[in-house]
Design a protein around this nucleic acid. Structure first.
Length: 260
DNA sequence: ATGGTTGCTTAGCAA
């Protein structure tokens, strides 16, 4: 009987490039569930062995070259659902859901948006509303739901090293922040902010330039919980250490613990 | 939206 569940999420920027690093991280942290984004690989050649060896089942929704999401679980994995089922264009493999450890889990990779005013920008803003509709259509208010992933939006000024610059960019534009806020309002809670007040705590640092050394980052990776699940969230963190070393992803893993 | 780096794919795109 599971009485607690530890959920993690990590944009790995290619699971094939990162598989040894992810495998050792799994052995070290042993989360019950790990949501992955930017796996960048079709399902038939996803490197499943390191996960099986570590005791994890996988729900895969990938594609060639870009995007790709997955859920790894060692506490059961049922009712896997890939993508939206709203009849609209999927716009890439960016969403997979499953039941794991008594929680309804979603791994999400929100479109980056390219630049403000682009076609991809419009798709990004729309994507939040599609996700909101999907969650409202599939789930009731009392359920334990975790929506984890790379949202490609920092929620607040304290989540951005230079808000004045970034508010004109896709990752912190007022319209993107508003779209995220609409998704969340009264439905999803940012678990990190239940346990940390400080600014300067980021989950992504650009590969280019001295961003990591100078902590020029943004907190765009989020683990959102429905209110009933948020009420039993006992801890949340960002594993900044995993952003270091040789050939890291440009994102750090994020984690949250729940007592069920 | 311009630079810098990384990954997928092998010249150029996406992030």
């Amino acid at each position: 009987m599971v009485d607690s569940v530890h959920i993690a999420s990590w944009n790995v920027n290619s699971i094939r490039a990162r598989q040894e690093r992810v495998a050792s991280w799994l052995e070290q942290h042993r989360p019950d569930v790990l949501c992955l984004q930017e796996t960048k690989v079709p399902d038939d050649i996803f490197p499943v062995e390191p996960f099986r060896t570590a005791g994890y089942d996988l729900a895969l929704y990938g594609q060639k070259g870009y995007n790709g999401v997955a859920i790894a679980s060692r506490v059961g994995l049922d009712d896997v659902r890939r993508g939206f089922d709203d009849g609209g264009d999927e716009g890439g493999a960016r969403l997979v859901g499953a039941r794991a450890g008594g929680v309804q889990v979603y791994s999400v990779y929100v479109p980056n948006g390219q630049f403000v005013g682009s076609r991809q920008w419009d798709e990004k803003l729309l994507w939040f509303d599609r996700l909101r509709a999907l969650l409202q259509g599939r789930h009731g208010a009392g359920e334990h739901i975790a929506v984890a992933g790379d949202f490609n939006v920092a929620p607040e000024e304290r989540d951005v090293h230079d808000p004045e610059f970034w508010k004109r960019q896709v990752l912190f534009h007022p319209q993107a922040r508003a779209a995220l806020a609409r998704l969340c309002e009264d439905r999803l809670v940012d678990t990190f902010r239940l346990h940390h007040e400080a600014g300067g705590l980021y989950s992504w640092w650009d590969y280019r330039g001295p961003s990591l050394a100078r902590n020029l980052g943004l907190r765009i990776d989020l683990l959102l919980a429905s209110p009933p699940l948020a009420r039993v969230c006992t801890a949340a963190s960002i594993d900044r250490e995993a952003r270091g070393g040789k050939l890291p992803s440009d994102h750090a893993p994020i984690l949250a613990d729940f007592r069920l």
